[in-house]
Design a protein around this nucleic acid. Sequence first.
DNA 1: ATATATTTGCAACAATATTGCATTAATAAA
DNA 2: TTTATTAATGCAATATTGTTGCAAATATAT
Lengths: 130, 130
Amino acid sequence: MKTTRNTTAKTAVLEIFEKSTTALSHTEIYKELHDVCDRVTIYRILDRLINDDIVHKISNLDGTVKYAKCNHSHQKVHIHNHAHFSCENCNEITCLENVKPSYIMPHNYKVNEINFTLSGICPKCLNSNI
Amino acid sequence: MKTTRNTTAKTAVLEIFEKSTTALSHTEIYKELHDVCDRVTIYRILDRLINDDIVHKISNLDGTVKYAKCNHSHQKVHIHNHAHFSCENCNEITCLENVKPSYIMPHNYKVNEINFTLSGICPKCLNSNI
DNA sequence: ATATATTTGCAACAATATTGCATTAATAAA
DNA sequence: TTTATTAATGCAATATTGTTGCAAATATAT
Ligand SMILES: [Mn+2]
Ligand SMILES: [Mn+2]
Ligand SMILES: [Zn+2]
Ligand SMILES: [Zn+2]
């Protein structure tokens, strides 16, 4: 099997996720790491982290794609069934690990993954708007 | 106020949505309309239709963005609270107008819109795989 | 220290989306 | 119907995001 290695760039990416309370885009990550490694390297690191179930990908209504570190510990079956919140004001995306939608599907669909993103105004922006 | 006009291109785009049972990407729409108008025009028409609550945008985890005509009639408050299904096999995206997730949000979030996309295998692909 | 396979940088490419500006065309007013 | 107004369009240029091939660098096991 193909083993995954711990490199300087990968460690740096993980540290950035650790520090951040919100999901990050490739561009945002690269801004912090343009001295450490190439653009392409970050794409490849993110791919690996997703493959290893360490990071998950979130796509926003406006088409932007962000990444966040998984906070839930690794269960046997790793599913990202929690919601994300996307603030229309500050554009930050936050994992809502405790918000899990319930729903009833029609027959004959095989669901592998769900992507549940709510958008609106986040608490931070609501407060500063008083 | 800025009024919106009915043009040949806009009518053509709407007709394509009318015919289609699935959501369509900009590229798919342009393939049918490359004799009618420019690429850019289609982007602008889609923007207007979204603004007028006639079309809604669906962005997929793989980065693809699709559009679908709203089938629910215009209520006072127009919310796209239905789910979408994205087939991993044929890549078609279908509106599931009857699937509406229920969920409990933490306080202090103002939710304006939701994006609930499930991915997996659609009925058509499940059947042809027997 | 050496071997091996993963990871990286770089450059090139591809796909998707946006912008400015002159021209065209839809709609309202005369 | 003709004219005036302004939204909509075409086109070319530019921006943004993501992918690929390949040689060189580096992490890990032996
Ligand atoms: Mn997760
Ligand atoms: Mn709708
Ligand atoms: Zn905010
Ligand atoms: Zn399918």
